[in-house]
Design a protein around this nucleic acid. Structure first.
Length: 425
RNA sequence: GUGGGCGUAGCCUAGCGGUUAAGGCGCCAGGUUGUGGCCCUGGAGAUCGAGGGUUCAAAUCCCUCCGCUCACCCCA
C-alpha cells in the first residue's frame, strides 16, 4: 500500500474549513495593506537558495530537496519563500515600479527534516515581502500585518519578540565580542555550542540546554553593538510599534536561521514559548539579499507564517472556524424514468445557481435521504414514477420533516423561496 | 543523523502463549411495496505493520527491518 511520503500529509475535507478560513483572512489582510499576490514556481535553480540562505545553514547543508532534471539543471523544491520573490523582483525589473513593491504569496515549502508536531517535510506558508525601502516604518507595517492577521484569526496570548542583529558594518564587531566571550568558557559549553562557536556564533544564543542558558543570558547583546544607523532604526521601529499599540519584547537571544537577515528580526509565538517549533510566524529585514542575487542594492523586509502551525494553534485555543457549507439540495429519485428527470433537473438547478448533489446507484429512497441527512443537506427533492407522470416533484425540508408536492417546472422558484435565511445556496 | 513511546478492519479499543481474533463508531442492507435523524436485526470489512526465530501451539515471547509519533539538532 502506498502512503503519503514521510512528513507530508493529506489535508482532508474535514480540515478544509481551517484552511479556507486562514487563506481568506490572509488575503483580506494583504488587500487591506495594499499587497499584491505573486506566485512563484515550486522549484527554482538550486543556486538561488544556496546563495541566499547561506552555505553553512542547516537548510542548505542537509534539508534541501534537490534534483537534476533531464537537461541536467540542478533544481530545488523551494525551502523558503523570500528568495524566489527577490528573484522575481529582479527578473521582472520591479525596481522600476514605484517603491516599495508590496507582495504576498502562498507557497508550499519543502525541507528534508525529521517530522514532529508542527514540523513537516512539506508545509505551507503565507508570506509578505515589501521591497525597495529601508524606512523602519515599513518594518512596522509588516509586523503590524502579522499581528493583525493573528488577531483577526482569533488567536490570543501571542508574544512578539524583537531584536536587531545589525548590518554589515556593525555585525562583525558584535560577532567578535560574542565569540571571544564564549571562547573563554569553551570547556563548559555543550557539544552543540562548541560546533556553533566555529560555524555560526549567532546561534549560540539559541541554545536551550540548562547548562548553556546562563551563558546566553550573560552574553553580549547585539543591540549594544549596533552602529548609529542601526540603533536609530531600532529606536524608531520601537516608537512606531508603540504608536500602533503592538506589545513587543526585546529578545536578544532571537536570531534567525537564514544568513540574509540584517537589522530587524522578529518572531511571533504563543506566550512564553520561545522555542523554534512553537513559532507561528517570523520575519525580518534583508537589505543585502537582492544585491547579492544580482539586483541593484535594494533594502527589503518580509514575514512568513506557517499555515499548519496556525491550524495547530486555532485547535489548541479552540477557535471555532466557519464550517464549509454542504450542498443546498439533495436530489433523490426512484426508478429509471425518474433518474433521467433527476439528472436533467440537476443541470437546470446548477444553472440557476443551486448547489445540488445526488447519488446514482439506484438506491432506496431511505438510503438516499439518509445520505442527505448525514451530509447536512437541508432540502431534498424527491421524484418517482408518479411525479414523472404528473410533472411534479416532492420538496422536503429536512430540518422540519415537512414536505409538499410541487409542479416540476416550479422547482427553481420554490427553492428560491426556501433559501430564506440561508446565506449560501 | 540521535534517543523515547507505539503499530490488532476506514477510525477507536479489548485480547498479552491454547480452537473459527472480540466490541464500539462508521459503512451497506432489512425491519417500513416511495421517506432521513431514534431504535432493533443482519452483513461486508483484519494476510493482528513485514520478515525471521523459540514452541506441540504466537496477535501474544525473542531478533531484525519498516512505518507512525514525540523529543533533540534546526526551522514556519
Amino acid at each position: 500500500m502506498y502512503k503519503a511520503p514521510r512528513g507530508t500529509s493529506d489535508i482532508l475535507p474535514q480540515e478544509q474549513g481551517y484552511w479556507s478560513y486562514i487563506t481568506q483572512k490572509a488575503i483580506d489582510i494583504a488587500c487591506l495593506y495594499g499587497y499584491q499576490r505573486l506566485d512563484t514556481p515550486t522549484f527554482e535553480n538550486a543556486g538561488l537558495f544556496v546563495r541566499s540562505i547561506g552555505e553553512e545553514t542547516d537548510i542548505v547543508e542537509k534539508e534541501m530537496y534537490s534534483f537534476q532534471d533531464r537537461s541536467k539543471d540542478r533544481l530545488t523544491l523551494r525551502p523558503e519563500g523570500t528568495a524566489p520573490v527577490c528573484r522575481a523582483y529582479i527578473e521582472h525589473g520591479m525596481h522600476s515600479l514605484p517603491q516599495p513593491v508590496r507582495l504576498y504569496y502562498f507557497a508550499d515549502i519543502f525541507r528534508y527534516e525529521r517530522p514532529q508536531a508542527g514540523r513537516y517535510r512539506q508545509h505551507h506558508q503565507f508570506g509578505v515581502e515589501a521591497l525597495g525601502d529601508s524606512d523602519p516604518a515599513l518594518d512596522a507595517e509588516v509586523i503590524d500585518m502579522a499581528w493583525q492577521l493573528y488577531a483577526n484569526l482569533g488567536l490570543h496570548n501571542l508574544s512578539l519578540y524583537l531584536n536587531s542583529i545589525g548590518c554589515h558594518s556593525c555585525r562583525p564587531g558584535y560577532l567578535e565580542s560574542l565569540t571571544a566571550n564564549y571562547s573563554k568558557r569553551q570547556d563548559s559549553l555543550c557539544p552543540d555550542c562548541r560546533r556553533r562557536l566555529r560555524l555560526n556564533p549567532l546561534r549560540l544564543l539559541d541554545c536551550k540546554k540548562p547548562s548553556c542558558i546562563p551563558l546566553t543570558e550573560k552574553a553580549p547583546k547585539s543591540i549594544d553593538y549596533l552602529c548609529q544607523e542601526c540603533a536609530d532604526n531600532l529606536e524608531s521601529l520601537q516608537e512606531l510599534l508603540k504608536l500602533l499599540n503592538l506589545p513587543y519584547l526585546i529578545e536578544h537571544r532571537l536570531v534567525r536561521g537564514l544568513d540574509y537577515y540584517t537589522r530587524t528580526v522578529f518572531e511571533i509565538a504563543p506566550e512564553g514559548e520561545l522555542v523554534a517549533q512553537a513559532t507561528i510566524g517570523a520575519g525580518g529585514r534583508y537589505d543585502n539579499l537582492i544585491e547579492q542575487l544580482g539586483g541593484k542594492p535594494t533594502p527589503a523586509v518580509g514575514f512568513a507564517t506557517g499555515i499548519e502551525r496556525i491550524v495547530l494553534n486555532l485547535k489548541k485555543q479552540k477557535v471555532a472556524v466557519p464550517a464549509i457549507s454542504p450542498p443546498f439540495v439533495f436530489l433523490a429519485y426512484l426508478g429509471p424514468k425518474a433518474k433521467y428527470e433527476a439528472i436533467k433537473l440537476s443541470a437546470l438547478l446548477r444553472k440557476s445557481g443551486f448547489s445540488v448533489t445526488l447519488t446514482y446507484g439506484d438506491r432506496s429512497l431511505k438510503a438516499q435521504l439518509k445520505q442527505a441527512n448525514t451530509a447536512g443537506i437541508r432540502h431534498a427533492l424527491i421524484i418517482g414514477e408518479d411525479e414523472v407522470n404528473n410533472r411534479t416533484i416532492v420538496l422536503r425540508n429536512m430540518d422540519k420533516g415537512e414536505q409538499e408536492t410541487i409542479q416540476l417546472d416550479k422547482a427553481v422558484e420554490k427553492l428560491r423561496q426556501a433559501i430564506g435565511g440561508s446565506t449560501r445556496h
